[in-house]
């Protein structure tokens, strides 16, 4: 798949502060999550991609074209900004329809598109209310509506789920996944790990202006050779199980859970451990209730990478 968005050694300075530091990454079709804590550089990257900031060093292109002062690119790009700001004297409908007029759609089509996109985000009933009277969640949804009303092939969403309730978040996640099925490219940023995990397995981890890792979660996890995998086994006899692995050189650490039924093992050779676990369980006749990998998730991966 060819890169839709490509950044090559991208750096951005704010005075003496480095907002982005030598960021090189590609975003392909589908959903890519940009994950990092507040101040990591996610919004800066998105502003560079959408041509709101110029690059100090390096390049960023969308479909092979630089984005600074390239307004024609925005026929195919939809952007949902992070900040909760609007033209407060407009209704939700006027706001989206007005922005569609800027895209060059005739009046009737602009109104039609605005109505459809507001319906999509469940704001059909409230579209004629002033935005200043909207709740936080409604404001977030109207922001999303203006980003997608012109059917862009590339959708860039900066913290789109901020301010949404759990139901709203679920609906938005479903919407974004539907967009992916239509063949669009979606770049979503968040600092909330479960949101990104729910959306996509393709993640770019960013921290202090640098890309820490890029790829799907298991792939990233495999990269972290330095950190042993954690495997949790809940059974009827955790100590008996532990006794069978004490002499195993591939096991780095074993701890017992507070519930008295869990054994947590840290090992560099996960597959080998699983093989030996099966044998040990059968030999000892131990009843295993649950096997899980507590650190096979984004949270743990991120914490490893930032060295916490």
């Amino acid at each position: 798949m060819s890169a839709v968005i490509a950044a090559d050694r991208l750096s951005k300075y704010y005075g003496n502060v480095l907002g982005l530091n030598e960021v090189s990454l590609t975003v392909e079709e589908g959903i890519t999550g940009l994950l990092g804590p507040n101040g990591a550089g996610k919004s800066t990257f998105m502003k560079l991609v959408t041509g709101q900031l110029w690059t100090d060093l390096g390049t960023v292109t969308v479909r092979g074209r630089r984005t600074w002062n390239a307004p024609e690119l925005f026929r195919a790009i939809g952007f949902c900004p992070e900040h909760d700001v609007f033209y407060e004297d407009m209704t939700g409908f006027e706001f989206v329809a007005g922005l569609m007029r800027l895209h060059g759609f005739p009046k009737a089509e602009a109104r039609d598109r605005a109505a459809r996109s507001l319906e999509l985000v469940d704001l059909g009933k409230d579209k004629d209310r002033l935005i200043r009277g909207y709740s936080r969640g409604m404001r977030q949804r109207v922001k999303f509506a203006q980003a997608v009303a012109h059917d862009p092939g590339i959708v860039i969403l900066d913290e789109p789920m901020s301010g949404l309730d759990p139901l709203g978040k679920r609906k938005l996640i479903r919407l974004i996944k539907d967009f992916k099925k239509e063949g669009r490219t979606i770049l979503v940023s968040s600092h909330v790990l479960p949101e990104i995990e729910a959306l996509t397995s393709r993640v770019v981890l960013i921290h202090q202006g640098r890309v820490l890792a890029e790829g799907d979660v298991p792939f990233i996890r495999e990269l972290i050779e330095a950190h042993p995998h954690q495997i949790s086994v809940r059974s009827s006899d955790p100590r008996g199980l532990a006794a069978r692995f004490v002499g195993d050189a591939s096991i780095q650490k074993m701890t017992f859970g507070a519930d008295g039924r869990t054994l947590v093992v840290e090992t560099h050779r996960r597959d080998e451990f699983f093989g030996r676990l099966t044998g040990a369980v059968l030999e000892a006749g131990i009843e295993v209730e649950e096997i899980s990998s507590p650190d096979d998730n984004l949270q743990a991966v991120f914490e490893y990478l930032v060295g916490k």
Binding site: Q52, P71, E72, L73, F79, Y87, H103
Partner: peptide, 15 residues
């Protein structure tokens, strides 16, 4: 000041 600039400059409209 109001940060609504993003809505205008991310449209196919020359600045």
């Amino acid at each position: 000041e109001n940060r609504t600039l993003a809505y205008l400059v991310t449209r196919p409209v020359p600045k």
